[in-house]
Amino acid sequence: MNDLHTDHPDAVSSPGLALWRVTNAWQRRIRTALAPHDLTHVQYVLLASLTWMDRTEPVTQRDLARHAGLDVMMTSQVVRALEAKGFVVRERHPTDRRAVALEPTPSGTGLANRATRDVEAADHAYFAGMDPSIAEAFLTGLRGLAARVDDED
């Protein structure tokens, strides 16, 4: 008998706990995939996002943070670390003196592409056991949750 007052009859009935367990297991795999690239998961997400984004207009740290779903201050700190490693260039924004424009360096773009291959291989291996129809429903559910989070911000 336990003293926890919960709506769930057992631990495996809690969607939040299930998400926690799955997320932690998946993140361990991603960290392992990124280790040879000397990137943290957050560094990878920001570098890959910046490489992915349309840069016909200058990309600000705020734009990058919004795209990646991260805090602007954290984004600023991580971008500085990526700049120190030579993977990102931070320059004055051409029209907004308060903003910084971001651009991946050629070595940053190359690293983002190499790391993406390993991250996607880890994703494929992790989710390989899911039935394709369940995987599609799972992705649809995640997109729905992400849209709700985006609406709250």
Results as ranks from 00 to 15, higher is better:
residue 48 A to T: 00
residue 27 Q to E: 10
residue 140 T to D: 15
residue 56 T to D: 09
residue 41 H to P: 08
residue 55 R to Q: 02
residue 126 Y to C: 05
residue 104 P to I: 00
residue 65 A to Y: 08
residue 8 H to I: 11
residue 94 P to R: 02
residue 43 Q to A: 11
residue 81 A to N: 04
residue 72 V to L: 14
residue 13 S to L: 00
residue 99 A to T: 00
residue 126 Y to Q: 08
residue 41 H to Y: 06
residue 124 H to L: 12
residue 87 F to V: 01
residue 121 A to H: 03
residue 65 A to E: 12
residue 65 A to V: 06
residue 44 Y to H: 15
residue 69 G to P: 13
residue 38 D to H: 12
residue 17 L to A: 10
residue 117 R to C: 09
residue 105 T to F: 12
residue 116 T to F: 05
residue 131 D to I: 13
residue 61 Q to M: 14
residue 21 R to H: 15
residue 92 R to K: 11
residue 139 L to S: 05
residue 48 A to E: 03
residue 48 A to K: 02
residue 25 A to Y: 01
residue 100 V to A: 09
residue 114 R to V: 14
residue 75 T to S: 12
residue 85 K to W: 07
residue 138 F to C: 12
residue 56 T to P: 01
residue 143 R to E: 13
residue 108 G to T: 03
residue 150 D to N: 09
residue 20 W to M: 15
residue 29 R to L: 14
residue 134 I to C: 09
residue 34 L to R: 04
residue 116 T to Q: 10
residue 99 A to P: 08
residue 74 M to S: 03
residue 95 T to K: 03
residue 21 R to T: 00
residue 147 A to L: 11
residue 112 A to F: 00
residue 104 P to K: 12
residue 13 S to P: 03
residue 87 F to S: 01
residue 108 G to H: 03
residue 25 A to T: 13
residue 79 V to R: 01
residue 94 P to A: 05
residue 124 H to N: 13
residue 57 E to H: 02
residue 69 G to L: 11
residue 6 T to I: 11
residue 13 S to H: 14
residue 139 L to M: 08
residue 102 L to R: 05
residue 35 A to T: 14
residue 20 W to F: 13
residue 84 A to F: 05
residue 97 R to H: 08
residue 107 S to H: 06
residue 7 D to A: 15
residue 148 R to V: 15
residue 54 D to Q: 11
residue 78 V to R: 13
residue 85 K to V: 02
residue 101 A to F: 00
residue 135 A to E: 09
residue 125 A to L: 11
residue 66 R to G: 09
residue 151 D to C: 07
residue 127 F to N: 02
residue 91 E to A: 09
residue 16 G to W: 14
residue 52 W to M: 09
residue 136 E to Q: 13
residue 89 V to H: 01
residue 14 S to I: 10
residue 72 V to S: 05
residue 137 A to C: 00
residue 129 G to N: 13
residue 88 V to W: 05
residue 63 D to P: 09
residue 122 A to W: 03
residue 144 G to F: 06
residue 95 T to Q: 06
residue 142 L to I: 12
